[in-house]
Simulated assay, not measured.
Amino acid sequence: MIPDDWTEHRRAEDRELLGWIRPEGDAWVAVNLLGREVPGVVDWLDAEASLDAIGLSWLADKWVLDREDGRAWAVRLVEVAPERIVVKTDDFGAIDASVEVIVLEWPAPRTLRHPEPGEHAVSPWG
Rank of each mutant, 00 (worst) to 15 (best):
V41A: 14
V75T: 04
L34A: 05
A47T: 08
D69C: 09
S50M: 14
W73A: 06
L34M: 14
S57Q: 07
V38Q: 12
L56V: 07
V38W: 07
V64D: 09
W63R: 01
L33D: 04
I54Q: 08
E83F: 01
A47S: 02
A53E: 13
V38N: 04
V75G: 06
V42M: 14
W63E: 03
L34V: 11
V42E: 13
W73L: 15
A72Y: 07
R71T: 12
V78I: 06
P82C: 02
D69I: 11
L34Q: 13
R67A: 10
V38E: 12
A47M: 06
A72C: 14
L56K: 04
R67V: 08
L56F: 01
A81I: 03
E83P: 02
R76C: 09
R67S: 10
E83Q: 12
P39N: 11
G55S: 02
A53D: 15
V80G: 07
A49E: 15
G55V: 02
L33T: 01
D43Y: 03
W73F: 14
L56I: 04
G55T: 01
W58E: 00
E68G: 09
G55F: 00
W58M: 05
V42R: 12
D69T: 08
R36V: 00
L33H: 03
V42H: 08
S50K: 14
R76A: 01
D61E: 10
E68D: 15
D61R: 06
D52L: 10
G40E: 13
L45R: 12
K62N: 12
V41P: 00
L77Y: 07
A49Y: 11
P82L: 00
L33Y: 06
L34D: 11
L33P: 09
L33E: 05
L65S: 03
L51W: 01
V64N: 03
V42F: 08
R71G: 06
R36G: 13
L65E: 07
L56Q: 07
R71H: 13
A81M: 05
D61I: 03
D69Q: 06
W58Y: 15
E48N: 04
V78M: 04
D69P: 05
A60W: 09
P82G: 03
G55I: 05
W44M: 08
P39A: 14
E83V: 03
D43E: 13
G70Y: 05
E79H: 04
L33M: 02
R67K: 10
L51R: 02
A53C: 06
S50Q: 15
L45H: 13
L51H: 00
A72P: 06
V78W: 01
A81C: 08
W63L: 04
L45P: 02
R71Q: 15
L34E: 13
E48W: 03
D52K: 02
A72M: 07
A81W: 06
I54M: 09
R36D: 09
L59Y: 00
L51C: 02
G55W: 00
A74Y: 04
E68H: 13
V78N: 01
V80C: 07
G40A: 12
V75W: 07
E37P: 09
A81E: 10
E48V: 12
A74G: 12
D61N: 11
P39V: 14
V42Q: 11
L59M: 10
G70I: 03
L59E: 00
G55N: 02
R71N: 13
R67H: 11
W58I: 05
P82A: 00
P82N: 02
D61P: 09
D52Q: 09
A72L: 04
D43Q: 02
L56H: 02
W63D: 00
